[in-house]
Amino acid sequence: MTTLTDRYVWAASRSVPESQRTDLERELRERIGDATDALVETGRAPADAERMALVELGDPAALAASYVDRPLQLIGPRYYLMWWRLLKLLYSVVLPIAVAAVAFAEILSGADVGEVIGSAVGVGFSLAVHLGFWTTLAFAVLERSPGKGADLAWTPDMLPQLPELSRPGRRGELIGSLVFLGIFALVLVWQQFGLPWVGALEAIPLLDPELWSFWIPYFLALIVLEMLFAIAIYAWGWTWWLVVANLVLNVAFVVPALWLFTTGQLINPEALEAMGWPWGDAGDVIVPVFVAVVIGVAVWDVIDGVIKTVRGRGGAMPTLGRT
């Protein structure tokens, strides 16, 4: 007949390496036996005493883990901050770029709005799960691997700038952004009356006049939002909320602009004719280059915001966080 003690000893020892098993079994039997005897001496029935002794020992798996110094947490304090910072970085950089890329590819292939949103959400969700799972798994393995491991030591260089100190630097950025956005808005309106400095377009609108029904006002509104965003950066400095806002604004601009451009709705056909488009084979090169540059600028803008936020918050990004 097996006793509770036998079952407890078996439960505890099966999870430790073979070489330590006999030792643990003997130590446990001694400990349980002595504790049970002491309780029997105080007048308890042997069965109750055994049960009480085991209750005091606690979960056999926890006991075995402490015996072989196995951590009882997935990621301990040694790696927790590193894990958390990396995860935030991945979610704020990789995830939005991938989702935007998928959405853009769907738009290019002529999918309708429902399909675009559906596949973007689907890819975003599965990518989020993958990023979280593999990162966590890697750190859990690291936590259990012997040796000190690569400690990414914190250094004083990672300390954030105080908001008052970084503000003067941001004033230049604010003025630059507002001037650029103002000129951009002016050009957007002015092109309707022709661009006097381009010979062929003196009296012909560059953009398709039909866009005035929705898209040009949409872009003008977006420019106003960008201006407000620049002011917000100046006032509060970069925060994760503003990083997200920056991403949304970039996507709101780039996706419709490229969609209009690649489907031939952006440029006024008359203007194209006046300029003599397509310029031989040049069109095959210019179009992809233009698309790539627009995407590149937007992606860099988002990454730049992330870097500034991390730097400003004193987050540790050993490769990106230091100039």
Binding site: R26, E27, R29, E30, G33, D34
Partner: peptide
């Protein structure tokens, strides 16, 4: 191991 219950 002199007694019935081995002790460390």
């Amino acid at each position: 191991t002199d007694e019935a219950r081995p002790r460390k």
